[in-house]
Design a protein around this nucleic acid. Sequence first.
DNA 1: CATCGATGTTGAG
DNA 2: TCAACCTCGATGG
Length: 311
Amino acid sequence: MPEGHSVHRITAQFARHFEGTPVAVSSPQGRFAADARLIDGRTIVRCRAVGKQMFLEFDNGLWLRVHLGMYGAWDFAGDIDVPAVARDPESTARDNADSLASMGAPRRLRMAESERLGAELEGFPPEPIGQVRVRLLTDHAVADLRGPTACEVLDGEGVDAVLARLGPDPLVDGRVRGEKRFLELAGRKRQAIGLVLMDQSVVSGIGNVYRAEMLFRARLSPFATAAELPRDVLSALWTDWDHLLRIGVKTGQMLTIDGLRGAAKARALASRDDRHWVYHRTGLPCRVCGTEIAMQEMAGRKLYWCPLDQA
DNA sequence: CATCGATGTTGAG
DNA sequence: TCAACCTCGATGG
């Protein structure tokens, strides 16, 4: 379920609590047992997020690559920090700005598309719950992975091969260098821009929510051919992705309606239904013009747009 | 309690 | 183009 912003947050959590310490790696569920032995007991030396993928480098040159897919999630527990939003979903934007705070009594923290605090722990480490593909355990913290689309151990070349297939990520490649690559890649796609924004080889980290929201924010038809769009339109899309991704990483939520204040902002933070321009709003009035929001499948994913504003 | 659907990707056909 | 992957919150009875 997570789009790029959550993967950056999860990776920061690993960098903070798992980097620089030996990690016991196991597979309670068993499916990852052989791979786990390759990195068991090693120290994590680097944590990287690129788009929706996370890479953890171990001190023997091997990497753990994880893609959460539709319903993958990490459960953290132990002496770890908890993002402000997860502690208090109704907290204000100002509270959220101070990103992380210590969690006091040991608890569970689930990090996927959203973040949720679980019950207090009875002991450490806690028993794995359900199908845990991978468990990473240090003296102070534990991370359990469940339901990932991809989870494998790679050498440096393997990582390079994966990275070579990924388009730019604003937080990895930078706004300027990333934009150059995005313009090159998107500018030659003779496909609908609604497809191109979801293509991870063109731009990394955008999923179904950000795709719909970015197109509305640009007042752009999802069906326009990417290669035929003026360069400054593509450029604006990239700039907006950079902008939205940074908000997402900071707040932990896909806040795509900017500039909200007071009650409207609190509502957007508290309720997913009040958070977006068009995503998941089929048949509801457009927030700008009142036209019913349309929905149709595009390459097997639901596409939402305003037929008037995005004509 | 059963069923549905989801913020994703891969690979078979 | 579609099923499979494999999880779980939301929904309805």
